[in-house]
Amino acid sequence: MDRKKPHLGTVQETLLIPLYARAVENRKEFPLLRDARAEEIVAAIDYDFERFDGLPSLTGSLLRTVLFDRWVADFLATHPDGTVVEIGTGLNTRYERLDNGRARWFELDLPDVVDLRGSFFTDTPRRTTLAASVTDDAWAAEVARGNGGPFLFVAEAVLPYLDETDVRGVFALLSERFRGALLALDTAGDGFFDTQEEHDALSKVAARMRWYCPDPAALTAWRPGIGVLASHTLTSLPGPLVEELPVPYREMLSVLAAQRLPQAEGYRLNLLRLP
């Protein structure tokens, strides 16, 4: 089989880390999540994935995905005809995991990622790929035309790689175009942002995070009406979700929580309601 060589920008290359994490996890007897599609995609890409073997951050990215999946599933349970917008979708397979047969999905990423993604995914009447930067308001107009909402925007491992000025612009764009929408995002603060050079996964790629956010509650001051609905570290995930994890992962999280490692405590997963 001829494998596809990815030609990705510096930040875009990071999408291969969570992809590989899901592929490796799919091989386990008791995984955090099942993603056979990710395993198929990894096998079809010509890239040195072995550089990420055994890294603790693979588990971290999986736990992030599990929580974001839960938020999407909860949203669709309440709004089965709603719209999910994946910002910086990479090679994510959330649609394959969670689509309910009714929702509208948009998957946004830069042109080089969309080109690679086109080898593995196909648009449908309810699923649309958008090639654009999240900072470009043209994509927002297309999403707004596609459905009246309600909207859930999922920005997984995306916004921390932007400058704060651009992140503020994204917040302004979403708040003005999609009143009352939900936004799931991760933030990097103390202990995580300052140790990127030593980070097990980021040290193996050239990309570095640029937006520092030690306290997600401060985001409520960016625009009147923003509310923080949930904010978790990887060691303080919602109790009901933790109870559903395989036993080895529950035990691991218990040990990590007791250690209070700066890298684990300085990275947060957040669900916001926009004004």
Rank of each mutant, 00 (worst) to 15 (best):
R51I: 13
T89W: 09
V11P: 10
L33D: 11
P214L: 03
S57V: 14
V84S: 07
A207H: 08
V24Y: 02
L269V: 09
V114H: 00
V72P: 04
C213L: 09
A141W: 05
P214W: 07
L182Y: 13
K28V: 00
A36T: 14
V42E: 05
G225M: 14
G82Q: 07
D123I: 01
P275H: 13
E243G: 15
M252E: 12
V85P: 01
R27L: 08
D53T: 02
V84E: 07
E96M: 01
A181P: 10
G191L: 15
G118Q: 06
R145S: 10
L253N: 11
C213F: 09
L91V: 14
Y267G: 08
P248E: 15
F49D: 00
V255A: 14
P80S: 01
P246A: 03
L76T: 04
S175V: 03
P214N: 13
P240R: 01
D35A: 02
N270K: 08
T165R: 14
E13N: 06
W105I: 04
V85M: 05
T59K: 06
R126Q: 13
N100E: 05
N92T: 09
D109T: 15
A264W: 13
F30C: 04
D215A: 14
L98E: 02
L245I: 03
K204V: 06
G60H: 09
N26F: 01
E29A: 12
I45H: 03
A201G: 09
S133H: 11
L15H: 08
L62M: 14
Q196N: 14
P214A: 15
L152W: 01
V154L: 12
L272M: 15
P31L: 02
I17R: 01
E244W: 06
G225Q: 10
L274P: 07
V42Y: 01
R104C: 05
R260L: 08
